[in-house]
């Protein structure tokens, strides 16, 4: 518990944590509500969504879907950057050296980092939900729609959101440990989350096996889980795998990434 408390204290006071969470909140509100609202009120609807679709996307009862649909790609990339920075920076600052000589075992030290990042992820998803709900209620009230609070489907969507965020966090941690620095970890992570998987999907339209592979890659799996719980209309959201399959695959990624990162941390010299 000491390791989790220590990591939470330093992540809580780290400006990067709040900057990245803030950037994500601005993005989710802008793309989920502000632009849709402008399009709804006489602006150009470039995505070809019907008025009814726009209204539905902004209804308070669909806030769960609004939260989850942003996470497979852009939200995931932000979470990955946060995790990669949190772990990778420790090598440059020399704080891993301080941590590993403080007393806890290497496994405990890693568990502390993972535990604290898990808390940050829960906070991020909770803040996203709260911000989206506030925006949705505001829009519904301004437009005078009949609206209701989110139901059970929102709980399912939030669970999926947490699992997707956990996978990207674990991926970021893994990259931070492998590269032993923040810059390469962030670069590789962003490249993967935003570029590589999309390029592979492009190749997949030409080659069947590659298309099948993209469905089960980290971003593809996250997109499929988001699609399975109602997320739609955002980049990276897919509907080719069942929710259960996607959830199990994501769980597998979390275990593999955290396990590999911890194993490396335990076995490798810190020089």
């Amino acid at each position: 518990m000491g390791s989790v408390k220590a990591e939470l204290l330093r992540l809580w006071k780290w400006p990067a944590t709040w900057v990245l969470i803030g950037v994500w909140l601005v993005m989710t509100l802008s793309f989920g509500y502000v632009f849709n609202y402008i399009a709804l009120d006489g602006g150009g609807n470039a995505r070809g969504m019907s008025q009814q679709q726009l209204v539905s996307a902004m209804q308070p009862e669909n806030v769960g879907a609004a939260v989850v649909r942003g996470l497979p790609m852009f939200g995931g990339a932000i979470i990955l950057v946060l995790a990669a920075l949190a772990v990778g920076s420790g090598y440059g600052w020399g704080t891993w050296k301080t941590t590993l000589t403080a007393g806890p075992s290497r496994v405990s030290a890693m568990a502390g980092t993972l535990g604290a990042l898990a808390v940050v992820v829960v906070v991020l998803v909770a803040l996203t939900f709260a911000a989206d709900l506030a925006a949705a209620v505001t829009v519904a009230s301004l437009e005078g729609w009949d609206w209701s609070l989110p139901g059970w489907a929102a709980v399912e969507a939030l669970g999926a959101s947490l699992l997707i965020a956990a996978m990207w966090t674990a991926f970021g941690v893994f990259l931070g440990v492998v590269t032993k620095g923040p810059a390469l970890a962030v670069g590789l992570g962003l490249m993967w989350a935003v570029v590589t998987e999309n390029l592979l999907r492009g190749v997949g339209s030409l080659l069947g096996p590659v298309e099948s592979l993209t469905e089960v890659l980290p971003g593809g799996t996250a997109g499929n889980l988001a699609g399975a719980v109602g997320g739609s209309g955002a980049p990276g959201v897919l509907t080719n795998l069942s929710g259960t399959t996607a959830a199990l695959l994501l769980l597998g990624y979390v275990v593999v990434f955290t396990g590999a990162a911890t194993l490396l941390k335990v076995r490798r010299d810190l020089v």
């Binding site: 204290l9 600052w93 806890p104």
Partner: peptide, 30 residues
């Protein structure tokens, strides 16, 4: 390790935290 205090090749602390907060983090770990 819990019975050893060490300073190796220069101190490794979080640059954005105060000296006191850095020690609080270290104290929590120990």
């Amino acid at each position: 390790l819990l019975r050893v205090g060490s300073l190796i090749e220069g101190p490794g602390f979080y640059p954005y935290l105060s000296g006191r907060d850095n020690l609080r983090v270290h104290a929590a770990r120990r």
